[in-house]
Amino acid sequence: MLTNSFKVWGGYAIVAYVAAVIYGYSSGGDIVGPIALGYKGGVGDHVGYTILIGLSMCCMVIALMFTAFRDADPEMAASYMGSSSIPASQPPVGASMWPIAMALGLGTVILGLAVHPAVFAVGIAVLGIVALEWAMEAWADRATGDPVANRELRDRIMGPIELPLMAAIGVAVLALSMSRVLLAVSVAGSVIVASVVSVIIFGTATFMAIGPELNRKIVNSLLAFGLIAVVGAGIVSAVIGERDIEPHHEEHGEDHSDEESLIIVEFGS
């Protein structure tokens, strides 16, 4: 018997497969290759094709699993519980931001395919996070009949993962953006930028601590503005590039300007 969940996930699998075929064909493969999973003929862009086929495979596996274990099947649940009637529907779940985040991630992945592998990697990371969070939320929303308890359950599992991740991403984003700015400006400018930014941080904090009570919204938008300003400045500076840094010639005139090799030496790979 085909359960509803099988139909849904099977449908996803087919859509993903068709998308893969279209993508493979349109990115330079012949028509047989993408259909035959590359058994005969080329598939065009390998990375994108592999991702879409992978997506299709995952959906198929999930669909088969749901059929095999009869999960999420109300009739099965009722018969398991020894009840003659089908259980009522689940309580409605709250708003979810994950669909939007997933769309963002997908967009980034596609953008990355066109622009730069690094952007692609960011997109994949976003998708991975979304997959984890969404799956957890979907599970937690239905774990018990009580939304508060569900929330707490979710936090108990995800807290240990989210907290360090959020903190680490926070540090990384701030430090990388700031250091791009420092590298873009002049030597004297770097001193000024570092001093001014820290004085602004300290000054704002002092003002908020001893000044008048600020509206929560103002505080939030202030923080958001600061974040956007730093990240934006970082991106702009990264695009502008580093200022010219002369290799230091102390005793010898040896040329160290081969940046690639220096980076390799630096990280020792």
């Binding site: 540090v171 430090a175 941080i201 160290h256 220096l262």
Partner: peptide, 27 residues
Amino acid sequence: STALLGSVFVSGQIYEFTVFVREGLGW
């Protein structure tokens, strides 16, 4: 604000390391 100031310090260190590497002081 402590965390933010700390981040400024770390970004300063990234900056400094990058400059040193460009100047020829590899690991």
